[in-house]
Each structure stands twice: as C-alpha cells, then as structure tokens.
C-alpha cells in the first residue's frame, strides 16, 4: 500500500515538474525543475529494483548534464524570455497530432495484448543471490554487451572532439567582426 502511495505521489510530482520545465519562461528555473524531475525519476527507478540505474541517474544526469546546462545558461547570461504570444505553426501542430495518434495506437495495442516473456532469468531474488544489482549488471554489460560498450566509448571520444571543435573561437570570424 505504501509503495503505491509513494509511486502515485512521485508520479504526480514528476508530472508537475515536467510541465514546469516546458512552460517556465526562465531557463534557470526550468533547469532546477529538470533536476527535480531527474531525482524523482531516480526514486521511481529505485522502487523498480534498478538501484544502479538510479545511482547513475543522479550522478550523470542531475550531477553532470544539468550542471552543464547551468554553466551554459550562466555563460550566455540568459534572463527570462519576454512575453511573446504563443504562435503555433501548422507543421509543428501536425507533428504533435501524429505523436498523439502514435501514442494512442501503442497504448491500445499494449492494453489489448499480452505481456511477453514474463519469467525471465533475473528476478529480484535471483539478482540478490547472484551478488546484487550492480554486480549482475556488470556481469551482463561486460559479457553480452561488450561490443556496444566499446562502441559507446568511441562515441564519447567523438563527442568530446566535436564539442571542442564546434565551440572553439573561429579566428577569422573574430577578425571579420
């Protein structure tokens, strides 16, 4: 009972935070609500027996990515946006309608279908006897998913180089200005 209560309270707060991230005029306030969103989502992950994912969520998302956003907001000295009336262009509206249609379709299929493959290898009890969530995830990550893991390291290297090259000051540009 208390687990349900906690989930619904967290879900309500996540919804509020998500709406505030999107609707707030001030980017700093939006980033703060994003932090709240990510922390609450980490709580949901922990309640789903995904403890290591919850820790990663707090460390990487709330600790690194949002701080990066904060740095850029401070660096660019962005204040609150002016009060411009919301214009809704037709292509964006079409994309939104298509998204909602897609979600409705997926939801209908999920509600009418059967959950496949219930009873897999790693139930919470099996993970507990195997040595805990982190140990089991490491075992799977470094055996079955070793190649995606290596490729993701190349992706990170590429992203670092790309970020440096893109954000570098263009000397010709400065002279031109």
């Amino acid at each position: 009972m208390s687990q349900e209560l906690m989930f619904y309270a967290t879900a309500f707060l996540i919804t509020v935070c998500s709406v505030m991230v999107v609707t707030n005029r001030n980017p700093v306030v939006s980033a703060i609500y994003l932090v709240g969103d990510l922390f609450l989502l980490a709580a949901v992950f922990a309640s789903l027996d995904a403890h290591f994912v919850a820790a990663i969520q707090v460390l990487v998302y709330a600790g690194a990515i949002v701080v990066l956003f904060m740095f850029v907001i401070m660096l660019l000295n962005l204040g609150p946006e002016g009060k411009a009336h919301l214009r809704i262009p037709a292509p964006e509206l079409a994309v939104l309608v298509l998204t909602i249609i897609g979600f409705t379709t997926i939801g209908t299929l999920l509600l009418t279908g059967q959950a496949p493959g219930v009873g897999g290898e790693w139930s919470p009890e099996a993970i507990q006897t195997n040595g805990g969530n982190t140990f089991t995830i490491a075992m799977v990550l470094f055996t079955k998913f070793i190649w995606p893991f290596e490729i993701s390291s190349i992706l990170i290297l590429l992203a670092v180089i790309a970020a440096i090259v893109i954000a570098k000051k263009d000397k010709k540009q400065v002279v031109h200005d």
């Binding site: 995904a50 990663i56 219930v118 009873g119 897999g120 790693w122 079955k144 992203a159 970020a163």
Partner: peptide, 26 residues
C-alpha cells in the same frame, strides 16, 4: 519480464544523452 537488458540499454541511452548535451550546448 525479469531481464536486465533494459537496464543495460538505459546506460547506453545515458551515454548518448551526455554526448548529445555536450555537442548540443557547444
């Protein structure tokens, strides 16, 4: 479904999100 592949996939999504945030903010 008691399968850890979904949680592994979350790690890759977090990796891609970190790269996307870095390049996007640059």
């Amino acid at each position: 479904v008691n399968n850890l592949d979904g949680q592994i996939m979350v790690f890759f999504i977090v990796t891609v999100a970190a790269c996307e945030a870095g390049v996007g903010l640059a």
